[in-house]
Structures are given as structure tokens and as C-alpha cells.
Design a binder for these strands. Structure first.
Length: 470
RNA sequence: GGCGACGUACCCAAGUGGUCUAAGGGGGGGGUCUGCAAAACCCCUAUUCGCCGGUUCGAAUCCGGCCGUCGCCUCCA
């Protein structure tokens, strides 16, 4: 099967054909950096990460852009409430976001543009829309997109523009406009708010504008893939399409991919329910980052994911299973003798596992099936270790695990022993050779207190790290 | 009210017309191996897929109704 994705706009799952095979462009709507990201946010960012990793693992060159929204009402309010400069606030939360990303093993995006650093691009886009009659200026100097000038408006969200006249919640918007459906491109400057001068007059960009301007800046006026949470379909992405295509006259995005929400014990995560789990808090509380990553990618991206207090421990157990397997393979990998048939089967298992994994990922990123392939590989590989495969067989399995890990990023890092552990391990080997079981057991306990777990097996003593790894 | 998604074992979660007496992970029970422990392996833990009808030779998968949960309808990953 060739690579295929579900596209929100067409509603179809269809083969993926890059506009430019030399470079696939991916734009992911990133965070508003005024506070800590929660696990729901990261579910969608990890979905984008998985997408990019798979595109690369399957041989494509990718340029990945994740924006940082560093100017909006919430940021202005938060900075004012804390009595600090906006830049100080957004710098602080950008750093936290980057730390969370790294901890969860997200690939580093090629670009992480900030809205406030791309004001000229945004102004130019608004200028184009004004020139083409798709935007208008109101009395206070704000500029709105004229939805009546864009018949395709509503096609992404499948909303009827006419129906949107009803149930209007205009009062929340402090800016006057001709039509309640119109959305703001440029907000006229207000006292106490940051603003930028230029041909549009003093003001600041509306929320949707940055994504159009920055995606086109880094990926071109038309690009391949645009991702985000399902809640961004409307109005954010609908508005992006309208303002981008109205300005350029070209198709904006080839494939729109949206990630379903994460629920906590069946409820939406919300402040009122007090069930918000923040990534930094979980990590600070000792959560194994790989377990959190696994928990957040384990459901298919288009279905709701139920997260509860057991999710993390369940994922941590699954991670421990992988770790034990890797430790056993590493121990076996230096053994030169073994059962030749088991080695042949190891080679076959490695090939079959990769085929199954790749087919799953090609099918609209079927991560659950890909994980099933991984865990079946773990079980069957353990059988082959029991069947006495040699180091060659173990190495074949290690090689395929590394290929899979380039996509899922759940394998242990090359483990580093804590200070003093090396000597204890050596001493324990000697104690066991002398059948001094009491000493051997005491050393095992001592190593455990250092976070080093010991497994005794046919290949001798092997160790792995317990708990979160820095 | 409009549009849309979903309801699979104790928990998480695939499967969307026959290979399903339903994948994978976690948890639980039993066993093998082992100085012990751990790890690993083996067996068991949904003859059933919210409920009721219908279509079909055949349905968890299609259709209709009902019940329940959730999302969007200009804050939102």
C-alpha cells in the first residue's frame, strides 16, 4: 500500500502526492505561549511529530514549521496581570514548551516562527486582501475579511455561511464590523496594547493571519500538509483558507489533517473540572517521558483518546517491557554461538515486522496497528532469545527496532550507569561466580537503590535503568 | 436548533461485510524456567462488539429507530 492520508477538506482518504517531491512542506499550528501546555495540546503536537517522522523514515525530505503564537488577548491580559513585559512572558513559556517538546522526544521543527517577528509578512497579506476587495477597514481602523466576497467560505468546517447569521455572539467582539461573520485581520491599536505601525495604520494582527503569513513565508503559497487539533477546523483553519486563497488565488493546502481530542476519564479537559494535566507537572512529578509519549500516541489520531490515572502506569509497564527486551538483545548481541534456525527466523521476523509496521503507518498513520507490530516483535523476539538465537539474530532484531524507533521514539536511550554502579556490577559478577548468593542479592538491592535493575539470564547478568531517565 | 464524531473485555485500544469463536498494551489468575528475585515464555481472563429491528448466504462492520457520550457552530490542540 502506498502512503495515504485522510483529508478534512474533501473528507476522503487518498494517496499522498507531494507538490514537490524534493521537499514535503508541513505546517503545524503550535501553542499560544502564555502558560504551560497540557497533555491534550501535546497529543496533537505528537501526532504532527509522528507524521513528520514517518514521512522522513519513508524516505521523504520534509520541512516542518510549527508556529508560536506570541501575541493575542490572553497574552496581553496575562502579562498585564503579572506586571511583566509581553516578551518576558512569551520567552518564559517558549522555553518551557521547548523543554516539554524535548522531553517528549519531539523532533525539532525546522522553523518555529513567532507571530511578532513576522509582522511585515502579515501586513503584506492584508494589503493584498484590501487590494483585491476581500477586506475592508472599519471606522476604528481595524480591518476585516469580507466573507461575502468568498463564496467557498465554510467548506472546510461544512458550515453554512447563511446559517451563521443566526445565534450570533457578537457582543464578545469589541470591534465593529459590517457583517457578524467577518473575522478580523488587523486589530486597530488600543491604549495599553502593543501595536505595530505601517501601511495599515497602528494595530496588531488577528489570530488567523499569522498562520497564513508564516506558512506561506516558509513553505510557499501552496504546500502539502497542515495539521492541528480538531477544534481548529473552525474558525481558525477555515479563516486561514479564506484569507490565503483569496490573497494568492492558489490552493492553500493539499491535505488538512486534524487530531481528535484527548479526554480525561471521559470528560473534556477543562479548568472548571480541574482535570488538566500539564506536561511539565507530570514530568516534574517523576513521570517517565517515554511512557507519557506512548500514552499520548497510542490511539489513532482521528479518534478520541481516553486518558485516566491508569494510562501512565500502563504505558510505563509497556515501556519497561520494551526496555527489558532491548537489554536482553544487547546482552545476546555479543554471543557468537547459537541456534542457526533461530537466527534465520530472527531475520525473517525483522523483515516481516518492518513490512507490517510500514504498511500500518502508510495507512493514514495507523499507530495502534504499528504498535501491535512492535509488541508482537517483542514477544516473538523473546521466543527466539529463548530458542538460543546468536548475536547475529539479536542484531537483526536490534536493527529493525531502531528503524521503528526512528518513528515512534520509545526505545531507551543508550543507558548510562550512575556513579559507582560499574564497580558494584563487577563485584556482583565475582560474587555470583563464587556462588555467594547473599552478597549477590545485597549488591542487587544496592544497585536497585541507584536505579539499576538486574536481570540474571543465560547471557549472564544484564542491567537496565529504572524509572524516568534524564 | 444546524453540522459532525463515537459507544468493542476490568482499564487503554485496533478491526468497519466472510480469514472475527474480535489485534496489541495494561491489569488479574494459573503454570514453566530460575539459587532467589527479576525478566521471559505458555495457558486462562469479550462465542461477543450500547439496545431493538432490518438488509444479506453471511454484520462488530451496511440501513433505520432508540439510549448514552463527546465535539464544532467565531477562547480552544
Amino acid at each position: 500500500m502506498s502512503l495515504q492520508f485522510r483529508d478534512t477538506l474533501s473528507g476522503e482518504t487518498r494517496p499522498f502526492t507531494p507538490l514537490n517531491p524534493a521537499q514535503v512542506g508541513v505546517y503545524s499550528c503550535g501553542p499560544t505561549i502564555y502558560g504551560p501546555a497540557h497533555i491534550g495540546n501535546f497529543r496533537s503536537f505528537l501526532f504532527a511529530d509522528t507524521l513528520v517522522r514517518w514521512l522522513r523514515a519513508s524516505g521523504r525530505t520534509v520541512r516542518w514549521v510549527v508556529n508560536l503564537t506570541d501575541i493575542d488577548d490572553k497574552i496581553i491580559r496575562t502579562a498585564a496581570a503579572e506586571g511583566i513585559e509581553i516578551r518576558a512572558l512569551t520567552d518564559r513559556w517558549e522555553a518551557v514548551f521547548r523543554a516539554d517538546m524535548a522531553a517528549l522526544r519531539m523532533a525539532t521543527p525546522d522553523e518555529m516562527p513567532r507571530a511578532t517577528e513576522h509582522i511585515p509578512e502579515q501586513i503584506a497579506l492584508v494589503q493584498q486582501l484590501l487590494d483585491k476587495g476581500h477586506a475592508y477597514r472599519t471606522e476604528d481602523g481595524s480591518i476585516f475579511f469580507k466573507i461575502s466576497s468568498w463564496p467557498a467560505y465554510g467548506k472546510l468546517a461544512r458550515l453554512d455561511p447563511e446559517a451563521m447569521r443566526v445565534g450570533e455572539r457578537v457582543e464578545a467582539d469589541e470591534y465593529s464590523k459590517d457583517d457578524v461573520r467577518d473575522f478580523v485581520l488587523w486589530k486597530a491599536a488600543k491604549p495599553g496594547e502593543p501595536s505595530w505601525d505601517g501601511p495599515l495604520g497602528p494595530g496588531r494582527p488577528g489570530w488567523h493571519l499569522e498562520c497564513s503569513a508564516m506558512s506561506m513565508r516558509y513553505l510557499g503559497e501552496s504546500f502539502d500538509l497542515h495539521t492541528g487539533g480538531i477544534d481548529l477546523v473552525f474558525p481558525h483553519h477555515e479563516d486561514e483558507i479564506a484569507q490565503s486563497e483569496a490573497a494568492t488565488g492558489k490552493p492553500f493546502v493539499g491535505t488538512w489533517m486534524h487530531c481528535a481530542h484527548l479526554h480525561v476519564s471521559g470528560d473534556k479537559m477543562s479548568k472548571s473540572l480541574g482535570n488538566i494535566s500539564r506536561v511539565s507537572d507530570l514530568l516534574a512529578g517523576g513521570a517517565e517521558p517515554r511512557a507519557l509519549r506512548l500514552a499520548l500516541i497510542s490511539a489513532h489520531y482521528r479518534t478520541n483518546l481516553n486518558y485516566n490515572e491508569d494510562s501512565l502506569t500502563a504505558a510505563a509497564s509497556a515501556i519497561a517491557r520494551i526496555d527489558a527486551f532491548v537489554a536482553a538483545l544487547n546482552a545476546r548481541s555479543t554471543i557468537t554461538t547459537g541456534d542457526a534456525e533461530a537466527d534465520q527466523r530472527a531475520t525473517a521476523l525483522a523483515e516481516a515486522s518492518w513490512s507490517r509496521f510500514a504498511a500500518a503507518m502508510d495507512d493514514d498513520l495507523a499507530v495502534p496497528e504499528a504498535l501491535a507490530a512492535l509488541f508482537d516483535l517483542v514477544r516473538d523476539g523473546n521466543r527466539l532469545l529463548d530458542a538460543n538465537c546468536s548475536g547475529a539474530g539479536a542484531q537483526a532484531l536490534i536493527a529493525v527496532l531502531e528503524k521503528i524507533n526512528a518513528v515512534l521514539a520509545v526505545l531507551p536511550d543508550r543507558a548510562v550507569l550512575p556513579a559507582g554502579a560499574e564497580a558494584l556490577l563487577a563485584e556482583r559478577i565475582a560474587a555470583r561466580a563464587a556462588k555467594d548468593w547473599a552478597r549477590s542479592d545485597a549488591l542487587r538491592d544496592e544497585l536497585a537503590s541507584l536505579g539499576v535493575l538486574i536481570d540474571d539470564g543465560r547471557d549472564g547478568q544484564r542491567w537496565r535503568r529504572a524509572g524516568p531517565q534524564a
